[in-house]
Design a protein around this nucleic acid. Sequence first.
DNA 1: ACACTAGTTGACCGGTCGGTAAAGTGCAAG
DNA 2: CTTGCACTTTACCGACCGGTCAACTAGTGT
Lengths: 213, 213
Amino acid sequence: METTTPHHTRHDSREDLLKAARELIVGRSYTSVGIAEICARAGVRKGSLYHFFPGKEALTLAMLDALYADFEREVLIPGLAGANGLHARIEAFVHAIHAFETRMQAESGQLPGCPFGNLAVEMGTHNPTLRRAIRGHLDAVTAHFRSVLDEAVQDGELPGDTNTEALAEQWLALMEGILVMAKADQDPATVLRLGPALVTLLTHSPPEVPHER
Amino acid sequence: METTTPHHTRHDSREDLLKAARELIVGRSYTSVGIAEICARAGVRKGSLYHFFPGKEALTLAMLDALYADFEREVLIPGLAGANGLHARIEAFVHAIHAFETRMQAESGQLPGCPFGNLAVEMGTHNPTLRRAIRGHLDAVTAHFRSVLDEAVQDGELPGDTNTEALAEQWLALMEGILVMAKADQDPATVLRLGPALVTLLTHSPPEVPHER
DNA sequence: ACACTAGTTGACCGGTCGGTAAAGTGCAAG
DNA sequence: CTTGCACTTTACCGACCGGTCAACTAGTGT
């Protein structure tokens, strides 16, 4: 038998809070979402939030961990193993992002852009803890990009002396910029319109670090 | 004689408010800066702010206009006419941005990133007025980029069939992304490290719209 | 001398912010 | 049956938010 339900697995308020925080903060922003609103959406009283989390910042940190885990599982991993060839993988990635932004706009009425980039921009200057956590997630994304580029080098699609580490970071930067533009436009089509820039960047990078001076 | 002092040109509270709002909002963010703090820095009482501006949003709109005018005069115009050749102009632009971010970090202790991009990300989802104003300024920046690219086409540095309109938008997107990364790092060196991506993007764009399908 | 007006001042508003404290609830192990 | 503990509930806190208001000050034109 051993019903392993540790207590009695009622509503799992902790999960509800994380879900509500994700939907609200990703859809709008950190400061514009209050804990009262998060609690209301989660169907949980404010005091309970402070039983599970020390405060709003810690809740957001935990939410970001879960968000990255889902992003890795649903986009990064499939995009890496899914298509064949660098060009096809870039296009698949762009379309996955486009689909995400389109779905979010349909659900919440707003095109959110990149959840991690948004937080980095909003809190980067005055919350070092959040900033460093986001920086870590962005590094993890870069590592996935790099492994895609390394495979392309092995398959002869990119020159053998390609600096895949630097190029992966440029990939992420361009992707973040595309999402800033799409958010300014509030139009997912911007993702598709600017997507080809990724192909240009990733298939024409200079052979080796110029080693200036 | 005709001392043209319309009233008596005392402290010009309006200018002081715009200056304070610029320093604070650019250095941090829109929501994290209150009008009380803006008034305190400007040496003006709160009621006076509402004599010159309908509210915080209108003050920010006016501040953004002045900010863009300065950016155009101090960076965009010199960068366009200053150096010779596309490559040199890109590098001059990157270094101008790097200098700005370095100076801001020295003055306020924080690396702000792109003031327009920041506002677009922070307010893009829930303040259409601000979003549209920022979108207008970004379009103006894109127009300057495009004229640089058009000159490069005329000088034979880029192929004659280059889509300079699309490429200028990609330039802006990559620049915004670079500044998001620099803000996440809180390190101006990131601007220089990612700067070469602009050269890759702008000197290897595909000849013509692929015209798929 | 007077009225007009641009600009200033400080007190005040309701609402919301993140966070706290204390009492209560119900299950489970002793 | 009782104790302990995970969790919930409610009331409350001071601080701050953007914004309003009426009274006041001081130059200007008549």
